[in-house]
Design a protein around this nucleic acid. Structure first.
Lengths: 110, 110
DNA sequence: TTCTTTCATCGTAATATTGCAATGAACTAA
DNA sequence: TTAGTTCATTGCAATATTACGATGAAAGAA
């Protein structure tokens, strides 16, 4: 049906899944890498450095903004996007707690 | 169009995105958590502990297996699923290298 | 004012994902 | 053999995602 049954999962499980979607598409990975590395974070620069149309980049930026991972500020006619370092850090710690799970050592299966 | 333009991204960007999809759905997060914690990893147990139909769980297991993050072994009529610790570790290091990026300190924008 | 630049939004088309009933395959038990 | 158990696969319906052309809004330049 294409509709995720969020009701049956824990808040943590849903949050991990939501945040993971941020980098579950190469365009958003590329955008985030650019924002970390670039000397500039103007929307137009992202459009020209990544090979997607401007509305497509705008849409990905919107999703990242909705998740709180980036923020944008208007500079004249252009818009400057940046990593929201606080939210990035809390996202990172949630994902890390998931990735760093250890296997039960008493267990010996498969 | 619903079709991701993988050609225009780097191999790393595509790989990060692909692997992130593994935990970009709460059902797969729940499955992976179960496999880490449970004393058993029988498919049928996952079905009963997570509230989704058996074909749905089977489908998520298939995706995780395709990504190499889990492996399954047949035990009579049932199937035992486990974390593939080697692949999990290499996935983790790739995701970590992405999450641990540092902002250019000389940069002061937004 | 008018024109241009920059970006967001709208609308739309196409593909992807999610979920499950029905069915099938493989093994066990009787 | 027949029946039951367990799980994978098929087929389908519905929602989600991706991508972009066209358009609109806002600011600056002429």
């Amino acid at each position: 049906m294409g509709l995720t049954k969020t009701e049956i999962f824990t808040a943590d499980q849903n949050k991990i899944a939501m945040l993971a979607k941020a980098f579950a598409h190469p365009a958003r990975v590329a955008i985030l890498q650019q924002l970390f590395q670039a000397n500039t974070c103007i929307c137009g620069d992202l459009v020209s450095e990544i090979g997607l149309a401007q509305p497509t980049i705008s849409q990905h930026l919107k999703e990242l903004k909705l998740l709180g991972l980036i923020k944008g500020s208007i500079e004249g006619t252009s818009v400057c996007y940046c990593i929201d370092t606080e939210n990035w850090a809390s996202m990172k710690s949630l994902i890390l707690s998931f990735l760093n799970q250890d296997l039960d050592p008493t267990q010996d299966c498969c």
